[in-house]
């Protein structure tokens, strides 16, 4: 028991929690934004992969780290545009279109990466984001290393989640998004253009997913390798349900999830050899499934989610 307590009391664990949570926060609020407008975006896994690749490649070619983040956002937005064209304009199945976007975005990312970076024994690296030194806070005992020793994108992610919670709940734009996700016909009757809202939400959401992927290559690690996203996108989709489609809960959900993940990583070193490591690696995926099963009935689903909107057609 004391071993477990030691893990929970270490500042390193809590620092890891925020680090692990960052891509999940960004991916989850991105997916949440487009789902609140009524569009499920299963392109997330591929968009995160592409964001991770293009962000890294931009920096590798000499650009500033923030330019890399911007490139990832633009890359994500590009695939968001593709997904909206297929699901909003044409009204195709959001499931199949999203999977198609994932397959395309990830294979395109691998293709571009292989083309630009020849095969090498050790993968090339960049200098990633360094932890920010916040005067006063970073030097606090325990709390400093635990919570105020993160890189800038982590604070950005938390800020964006809070901002999105405000925008959705309190602003006219948020109201238009919610109306479009609940009842696009009523929204149109109120002078909102549901098509435009859905396009905007999917594109902005995909940009967030792209940045979430870029965090992996620009901050958490310093190189890109295929399959590095490892299902994080799918976990984000599960977290949206767990958060009952609310950004503030998505933030908490992602952090809670990261806590479990960071905890199991440390437990793995304690129980090394007793329990096969694969068991620990399964935990995040199983946890997502359990979260879905617990929350799916209780969550408030946007009523028009996955329903294409065609003017004059019911």
């Amino acid at each position: 028991m004391s071993a477990l307590f030691d893990i929970l009391a270490s500042a390193g664990l809590w620092a890891a929690v925020l680090r692990i949570a960052t891509p999940l926060i960004l991916g989850t609020i991105g997916a949440l934004l487009s789902e609140r407008a009524g569009v499920l975006n299963l392109g997330i896994e591929g968009i995160m992969t592409f964001g991770a690749m293009v962000g890294w490649l931009t920096v590798y070619n000499g650009a500033d780290l923030w330019v890399g983040v911007l490139a990832a956002a633009l890359g994500g937005a590009m695939f968001g545009l593709l997904h909206s064209a297929l699901t909003v304009t044409l009204g195709l199945s959001q499931h199949v279109s999203g999977l198609g976007v994932t397959l395309f975005a990830s294979s395109f990312a691998y293709y571009v990466f292989r083309l630009m970076v020849p095969v090498a024994g050790t993968p090339p690296t960049i200098t990633p984001f360094q932890p920010l030194d916040i005067p006063g806070l970073s030097s606090l005992p325990f709390f400093g290393p635990a919570f105020f020793n993160q890189t800038a994108p982590t604070y950005l992610a938390i800020g964006l989640a809070i901002a999105l919670a405000y925008v959705i709940a309190r602003t006219p734009v948020g109201l238009a998004i919610r109306m479009t996700g609940e009842n696009p016909h009523a929204a149109e009757a109120q002078g909102v253009n549901p098509m435009a809202v859905r396009y905007g939400a999917v594109i902005a959401g995909s940009a967030l997913m792209g940045v979430g992927g870029a965090f992996l290559t620009l901050s958490a690690f310093n190189s890109f390798f295929p399959t590095m996203v490892q299902g994080r996108g799918w976990i984000c989709i599960a977290l949206v349900v767990f958060a009952s489609w609310r950004p503030e809960r998505a933030l908490l959900g992602a952090i809670l999830f990261a806590l479990f993940d960071a905890f199991q990583l440390r437990l793995q070193t304690v129980l090394n050899g007793v329990v096969p490591y694969q068991i620990f690696l399964m935990i995040p995926y199983l946890l997502s499934i359990v979260a879905l099963a617990v929350m799916a009935r209780r969550a408030r689903v946007p009523q028009a989610l996955m329903q294409p909107y065609r003017r004059g057609e019911r």
Partner: peptide, 21 residues
């Protein structure tokens, strides 16, 4: 890069969706 095969296959899925539409 061999990934061109994955790209083509993914693209044919997307264009098939549009074509069926």
């Amino acid at each position: 890069p061999t990934y061109i095969a994955d790209v083509t296959v993914a693209l044919s899925l997307l264009s098939m969706l549009v074509a069926v539409f």
